[in-house]
Design a binder for these strands. Structure first.
Lengths: 139, 139
DNA sequence: TCAACAGTTTAGAATTATTATAATGTAGAA
DNA sequence: TTCTACATTATAATAATTCTAAACTGTTGA
């Protein structure tokens, strides 16, 4: 749990001006012990519940992308009509529940290291992500 | 390499009417030895090169989704503004080249089986997909 | 063979997510 | 405090996808 001055430091140290919109978004994204997944839409709703000052949609997009670029958020690839982001930036994987359209973390420790026995010349690996799609047993 | 009557059988046997639009799209997608990746946009371009009869965009979407549902195409999850599809429906994985925005198959044999040591009650695994993001070594 | 129906295609409108624009506002350095 | 570069904002623009309703066409069965 960080207080505002810690968010200000965090933003400033990564070259982002600590504007009140960014601080508010930090509070919403990083104040919880638990990490979580969200879409831009989810975040807009959280903001409108958390404050009376509206933050424009464009700012929400800009801020999320800035935070992603700085490594404070990860984007999660799912077959989806919208982008999912994750406040958990540690290396981990995901279940995607196709029945409930729900995304669930898989701790990195719960996945045996993935061994890839091939490579592409001139390229280096940036990340290895596992997506496990699940569905209701009965279906 | 299948000829049209084989596509007609294939469509009919899966409960899809063999209309001329669907047959044309089959020719474009499944006539090659090599499997490939495409976006809806790519497919529309291929169609317009391959034939003088235009196929409407809505039909392309409908057909691709119908083929996906029947298991003739797979959708590939990537952080992207558009959906990627794969004519290779066998179990395999992908490299995604972030420098070139290019998608490359990884043969299933080149990935050691992924072991997940956790599960979700009431859910069964439908698929396990590995996405390896790569970039230029120099970057 | 052919009429009838259900499934398809179609053009275009509608919707949704995201990005661009340009004017206004503001944090931070001097 | 003032200035300047960076941010925010509302709105428009764009792009991908889905919806709609009318026209069309395989297929079935008489």
């Amino acid at each position: 749990m960080l207080n505002n001055s810690q968010y200000i430091d965090k933003l400033r140290s990564s070259g982002l001006r600590p504007t009140k919109q960014r601080i508010k978004i930090c509070e919403i994204l990083f104040n919880s012990q638990k990490t979580f997944h969200f879409t831009i839409n989810d975040l807009v709703e959280k903001i409108s519940k958390a404050t009376n000052d509206k933050i424009s949609l464009a700012t929400v997009y800009n801020t999320v992308h800035a935070f992603k670029k700085k490594g404070y958020l990860k984007e999660i690839p799912i077959n989806s009509d919208q982008s999912y982001f994750d406040t958990n930036t540690s290396h981990h994987h995901h279940f995607y529940d196709e029945s409930q359209k729900d995304l669930i973390d898989i701790d990195d420790a719960d996945v045996e290291p993935v061994k890839i026995n091939t490579k592409i010349p001139g390229k280096k690996i940036r990340s290895v992500e596992v997506l496990v799609k699940v569905e209701d047993i009965k279906s």
